[in-house]
Amino acid sequence: MKCNVAVVFMHDYLDGDLAREDTLQLQQHLKHCPACLSRYESLERTDAFVKAMPMEKAPDNLSYRIMKSLPSSRRPAAWTSWVRRHPAVSAAAIFMVVMLSSFVSMWNQSQELSVSGPDLEHVVFEGRTVIVPAGQKVTGDLTVVNGDVQVLGDLEGNLTVIDGSVKPLASTAHIAGQVKTIDRAVDWFWYKVSSYFGTLAYGS
């Protein structure tokens, strides 16, 4: 056996990776080659010393610091994965939230009487009632929110009443355009009904 082969065998032997026959060959070589024997002994010592290095223990409070350094909770991740798995329901839920919030804000802001139209000079207010007095002529459309309307005179345009009512027309009254009443409570009711069916469909 040549010495360079013997060196490879030595390493394989120290790795616990040398076949029995090869080990016997190496043994024979070491008996006759003092240089290789001394090299083997040196390698063996190195191995033993390195293996004997004591285990370094982590400082006592390291576990605590590690646990504290973790992001506080994995729950947000679980939440986002739920959203990823149910895109349609999530989109519907967000839509509902947006609609509801805008609806609520509109509902709250429009409690007071407001009247709009190009010709408000000839209109009289009495509490929450908007009156077009007898003998007066109002030109253009008239829109009333959160109030009742009583028409005694002429209205040369459309009348729109939101969340209010139109009192029976007097015989002197004349409205050139259309009369339209919108009840937002109906919308509210419709919302209630649809969200009720929504909870039936998806669970609360």
């Binding site: 285990m55 982590a58 576990s63 646990m67």
Partner: peptide, 15 residues
């Protein structure tokens, strides 16, 4: 459970 993983490996990894 994660704390247990930390305890199992902290010394080995530190070493």
């Amino acid at each position: 459970a994660f704390a247990e993983i930390v305890d199992l490996y902290k010394d080995k990894l530190y070493h």
